[in-house]
């Protein structure tokens, strides 16, 4: 379970957001580019430091401006799937996925089996020894997800995990991803600018604009787009429209 209050002065606006995500629940942060949604992930993971607020994950305080607590990213046990995946280009698929386990000093004979199981589950066992630079977009996405999930994270963060894929791969992986996130049973936060991602993968949705929440509710409520406030930057045009104000419907 994650509870967080994050306040951070950014260049153009102040980010101010309250979050609460349960285990096995997927929270989607929806918004156009530059709305502050990726910053939220960086603040939660410890890559950025909030100006004020607190982060409590599984009853452990990871950050508190009041008490002067800051747990560094390497000690937070938070899985992070980066936009474009950030797979280490100098390593094989196996070395990428096992990186987190090696950092936890788990002996090789123990993590070998674990890595193989993840590779099997994600259907990428045949590329185990490939360099990640030789993989397709869909394979990269799966390696990135495996690398983040294998450390059994207390929280999983995903930054636009489907943007780097072509449309047919996206359709397929979108459904898979929902299943994986629910099954892995930690709170997950997914950042996207696609309404369809939000509807299919999310349980709860928060729509961000200039660092503030302008709409929040269940993902199922997104089906009737009329609940999105008219006065926001998000002005609904039509279901088929590819992108409006930076939010995509594909």
């Amino acid at each position: 379970m994650l509870n967080a209050t994050l306040i951070k002065k950014l260049r153009d606006f102040e980010l101010d957001i309250d979050l609460s995500v349960n285990d096995g629940e997927v929270m989607v942060l929806l918004g156009e580019n530059g709305s502050g949604k990726s910053t939220v992930l960086n603040l939660l993971s410890g890559l950025l430091v909030p100006d004020e607020g607190n982060i409590i994950l599984n009853n452990i305080e990871l950050f508190s401006s009041e008490k002067g607590i800051f747990v560094p990213p390497e000690e937070r046990n938070i899985g992070y799937v980066f936009q474009n995946y950030a797979l280490f280009p100098h390593m094989t698929v196996f070395d990428n996925i096992s990186f987190g386990l090696r950092m936890r000093r788990i002996p090789k004979n123990q993590f070998n089996e674990e890595v193989d199981r993840f590779l099997e589950d994600l259907g990428i066992a045949h590329v185990k020894c490939e360099r990640v630079t030789n993989l397709s977009g869909g394979q990269r996405q799966r390696v990135a997800l495996a690398r983040a999930l294998i450390i059994r994270p207390h929280l999983l963060l995903l930054d636009e995990p489907l943007t780097a894929l072509d449309q047919s791969a996206r359709e397929k992986i979108r459904l898979e991803l929902r299943t994986q996130l629910v099954n892995s049973n930690q709170p997950s936060i997914l950042v996207t600018h696609s309404l369809k991602d939000a509807r299919i993968i999310g349980d709860k949705v928060m729509m961000l604009e200039k660092g503030k929440v302008i709409w929040s509710g269940k993902a199922s409520d997104l089906k009737s787009l009329s609940t999105i406030p008219d006065d926001s930057a998000v002005n609904f045009v039509s279901e088929e429209y590819i992108s409006f104000s930076g939010i995509a419907i594909d």
């Binding site: 980066f82 950030a86 280490f88 987190g100």
Partner: peptide, 24 residues
């Protein structure tokens, strides 16, 4: 982003430097 990824996977700054930054 590679250094950031290493940090979130449990590598401290020095290990990140040795295992990720220097090889790249």
């Amino acid at each position: 982003v590679y250094e950031n990824a290493a940090r979130t996977l449990g590598a401290g700054p020095f290990v990140t430097f040795v295992k990720v930054t220097i090889p790249l």
